Simulated assay, not measured.
Amino acid sequence: MSFIKVCPLDEIPADGAIAARLDDDTPIAVVRSGDGVYALDDLCSHAEVALTEGEVYDGTIECWLHGSCFDLRTGKPTNPPATRPVATYRVKVEDGDVYVSPAPAD
């Protein structure tokens, strides 16, 4: 499985997110929550606005527009109005850098 470097770990705020792009220009949110680092599509499946502009808490990221929350591990919505999940991506951290697999996780 291949991974691409997307950012240094210290660029991601604690319990926060930054926007990044995969090689094919897919926008992703790279998120820190507790000790975990996650990557998921940066577009809400309900309103197609950037999730990176929302809040990160309790293992979720909240869309700022209508309040849909998505589980950082699975991409599944945890409350309405979103009903469709967002894609998630495998992440690894090595030597202070964050790497993301360009293929969505199953």
Score class of each variant (00 low, 15 high):
D24H: 01
I61N: 07
P13V: 04
D71G: 06
S101D: 14
E94C: 09
D15N: 15
G34F: 01
A87Y: 04
V98H: 00
P104S: 00
V31G: 05
M1Q: 13
L43S: 14
A17H: 01
N79Y: 04
S2Q: 15
G75W: 01
I12P: 00
E62P: 01
Y89Q: 12
F70D: 09
P8W: 11
V86N: 06
P13S: 04
V6F: 08
D10N: 15
L51I: 07
P13E: 07
K5R: 15
G34D: 00
G16A: 04
L9V: 10
D106W: 09
A87N: 13
F3I: 03
A47E: 15
I18P: 08
L65R: 09
L9K: 10
I61T: 09
G54N: 10
I28V: 14
W64S: 13
V30H: 03
D97R: 13
T88M: 03
C44A: 08
E55I: 11
A103M: 11
D106V: 11
I18F: 09
D23E: 15
V86E: 02
E62I: 04
P104E: 00
V91Q: 07
M1E: 14
P77F: 06
S68P: 06
T88L: 01
V31I: 15
P81V: 11
D58P: 05
S2T: 15
V98D: 03
R32K: 13
D42P: 08
P27I: 05
G16P: 05
Y89A: 12
G16S: 06
A50I: 09
N79I: 02
D10H: 15
G54C: 11
P8V: 13
V37F: 03
G54R: 07
C7P: 06
V98P: 00
G75R: 00
D35Y: 11
Y89G: 13
H46T: 10
V37H: 02
G36P: 07
V91D: 07
R73A: 15
D95I: 00
V37I: 14
V93F: 11
V37K: 01
S33G: 00
P8G: 13
A29R: 02
T88D: 03
P13C: 06
A47F: 08
T60N: 12
E53H: 11
L65Q: 12
P13A: 05
D95N: 10
D95R: 04
W64E: 12
P102A: 02
